[in-house]
């Protein structure tokens, strides 16, 4: 069902855990599948993401996309991290089954939520960042024949 890359990230997820006193924490869920993802960011004064950790209550794809997303944003600037889309995460994993596309949205949204938290804590505004939704399930549509 999953690609080798997905399985690799699932078997050995990178950056699992928590960061004490993180610069930003974001938690998002998908009410439809019930899955939840949390991202911790440690951002330095140059707006560079020094460290990132995640926790996920979710399916194989959710675990793998969280892992890959943390890899993709680590060491990046806030603006660069903002540009990491779910598509980029999926491509980095060599793709996901159609029913699992929404799981990668969870990763994108969790990063945005953590960045939003960081911006709020520091009273700054990040260009192009909108207030994230807690529940991403409204994106989804029915399968068509």
């Amino acid at each position: 069902m999953y690609t080798e890359k997905v399985m690799d990230h699932f078997k050995n997820p990178r950056n699992v855990g928590e960061i004490e006193n993180a610069s930003g924490v974001g938690t998002v869920g998908n009410a439809k599948c019930g899955d939840i993802m949390r991202i911790y960011l440690d951002i330095d004064e140059n707006e560079i993401i020094q460290d990132v950790k995640f926790k996920t209550f979710g399916c194989g794809a959710a675990v793998a996309t969280s892992s890959m997303a943390t890899e993709l944003v680590k060491g990046k600037t806030v603006q660069e991290a903002l540009a990491v889309t779910n598509k980029a995460v999926m491509e980095a994993l060599d793709g996901l089954p159609p029913v699992k596309v929404h799981c990668s949205l969870l990763a994108e949204e969790a990063i945005h939520a953590a960045l939003w938290d960081y911006a709020e804590k520091n009273g700054i505004k990040i260009d192009g960042l909108e207030k994230p939704k807690n529940d991403i399930s409204e994106h989804e549509e029915e399968e068509e024949y």
Binding site: F10, F57, G58, C59, V63
Partner: peptide
């Protein structure tokens, strides 16, 4: 409690 089925299955 606290874990998700598919991950467990894999």
């Amino acid at each position: 409690q606290f874990i998700e089925g598919e991950s467990l299955l894999i």
